[in-house]
């Protein structure tokens, strides 16, 4: 059986290199037969695509897509640099 570290590395590479996702900052963890995705994206669709690519890369694992979607619409407080 392949060491989980190599499988996780391959999933992470796929998320970065697959044209559907090209997402670099997603954390991939494997525990037993479970695959966990964590991180932050700005669209629900991107989270779904990341789940798809991860599943295709390691179909034998049970996927937990724990990526957060943060849609920032409002500007925040000004910062004064004096």
């Amino acid at each position: 059986m392949e060491a989980p570290q190599y499988v996780a590395a391959r999933v992470q590479q796929a998320l970065a290199e697959d044209g559907r996702t090209n997402e670099l900052g997603i954390r991939v963890d494997i525990r037993g037969d479970q695959l966990f995705l964590r991180g932050q994206v700005s669209e629900v669709e991107q989270r779904t695509r990341l789940g798809q690519v991860a599943h295709e890369t390691a179909p034998e694992l049970r996927l937990h897509n724990e990526i957060n979607v943060v849609d920032a619409t409002e500007p925040g407080e000004d910062e004064h640099l004096d």
């Binding site: 943060v70 920032a72 409002e74 500007p75 925040g76 407080e77 000004d78 910062e79 004064h80 640099l81």
Partner: peptide, 9 residues
Amino acid sequence: LGRAYGVYC
């Protein structure tokens, strides 16, 4: 930022 943009004065 967690917001649309930051403003720096």
